[in-house]
C-alpha cells in the first residue's frame, strides 16, 4: 500500500524497489566550539523490500534512532543517500515523503480527541476527501488496533498501552509507503510489551505496511520482524531472518555477545 499520488516515478532498470540506504553517515554538531562532532551512524547500507518488516536491534546509543530520524528527514545526512523505489528523497521535505514515524512516547496531540489524532494525517490523502471517508478510515483504524468506539475519548484519559495503540493507528491511517517505529513499546511494562508486539505484527501484516522497527528488546524484534538487523556503534553488523540469527550461523564476536 502507498499513497498513489505521492509515489515517485517508476524505478529505472536495475534499481531496487522499497527503501534503500547507501553509505549513510549521520553526525551531530558539537555543542561546544572546538570539540569534535559525534558520529551516530557511520556508513550504513540497508534494503527493505515492499511489504517487509525489518527490525533494527542494538544497544542504546548505537545510532539506530538517529538512522530512523534521518530516513524520516528529521536529521540531515552527512554523507550517503536514502532512496525510495530508486528515487533520492534528500530534497523532499519531511511532510511530503509519505513516510510515517511512531515515537517511543506516542507524542499524541493532547488538545485533540482520539479520533482527531487518528484523522490528523488524512488531509491530502484519498481518505481525507470527505467527512464520511475520513470518519470511515478513523473507525477502520481504531478497529484494527482494538480500540473501536474510543474516538471521542480524550487522549489523556487512556492508559499507556491504549495511547500507543492510538499512536499506531494514527501513523497507519494515511497509509504511509514506509512506517518507521522508534522503540514504540519500550515505555510499557514487560507483559503489555509482549502482548502488543504480537498485535503490532498482526496489524502491520494486515495492512501490508513496509516497516522499519527499532528496538533494544530481542524478543520484541524477533516476534515482529521478517528480518532482524543488529546495529553496533553506528554500523549494521548483521542482517538475517530471526531463525538464521537464532541458529548462530557465522556471527561475529560482538554480535554474538550482544545477542547472547
Amino acid at each position: 500500500m502507498g499513497r498513489p499520488d505521492e509515489r515517485g516515478p517508476s524505478p529505472s532498470a536495475g534499481e531496487a524497489r522499497g527503501l534503500e540506504v547507501r553509505g549513510a553517515v549521520v553526525r551531530y554538531p558539537s555543542s561546544r566550539r572546538g570539540s569534535e562532532p559525534t558520529t551516530a551512524v557511520a556508513g550504513l547500507d540497508l534494503h527493505v523490500a515492499p511489504g517487509e518488516v525489518v527490525a533494527l536491534l542494538g544497544p542504546s546509543g548505537c545510532g539506530k534512532s538517529s538512522l530512523l530520524r534521518t530516513i524520516a528527514g528529521l536529521e540531515p545526512l552527512a554523507a550517503g543517500e536514502v532512496r525510495w523505489d530508486g528515487v533520492d528523497v534528500a530534497p523532499v521535505p519531511v511532510h511530503r515523503r509519505g513516510f510515517g514515524l511512531m515515537f517511543q512516547d506516542g507524542q499524541l496531540f493532547g488538545h485533540r480527541d482520539v479520533a482527531g489524532n487518528v484523522a490528523y494525517g488524512l488531509r491530502g490523502t484519498p481518505f481525507g476527501a470527505t467527512r464520511a471517508t475520513r470518519a470511515e478510515r478513523v473507525a477502520e483504524m481504531l478497529e484494527l488496533v482494538g480500540l473501536a468506539g474510543y474516538g471521542a475519548r480524550a487522549v489523556g484519559s487512556l492508559s499507556g498501552g491504549q495511547q500507543q495503540r492510538v499512536a499506531l493507528a494514527r501513523s497507519l491511517a494515511p497509509a504511509p509507503r514506509l512506517l518507521l517505529l522508534d522503540e514504540p513499546l519500550s515505555s510499557l511494562d514487560r507483559r503489555l510489551r509482549e502482548e502488543l508486539s504480537v498485535e503490532v505484527r498482526r496489524v502491520l501484516a494486515a495492512s501490508g505496511t513496509t516497516a522499519l522497527y527499532v528496538t533494544h528488546d530481542h524478543a520484541e524484534a524477533f516476534s515482529v520482524a521478517d528480518r532482524v538487523g543488529v546495529m553496533i556503534a553506528g554500523r549494521l553488523r548483521a542482517l538475517a531472518t530471526p531463525d538464521e540469527l537464532a541458529a548462530d550461523v557465522a556471527l561475529d564476536h560482538d554480535v554474538a555477545a550482544f545477542l547472547r
Partner: peptide, 11 residues
C-alpha cells in the same frame, strides 16, 4: 510533537 505532525504530512 511538531515532528509527529510533519510525519503525518503536515507542512
Amino acid at each position: 510533537l511538531r515532528q509527529a505532525a510533519a510525519m503525518l504530512g503536515a507542512g
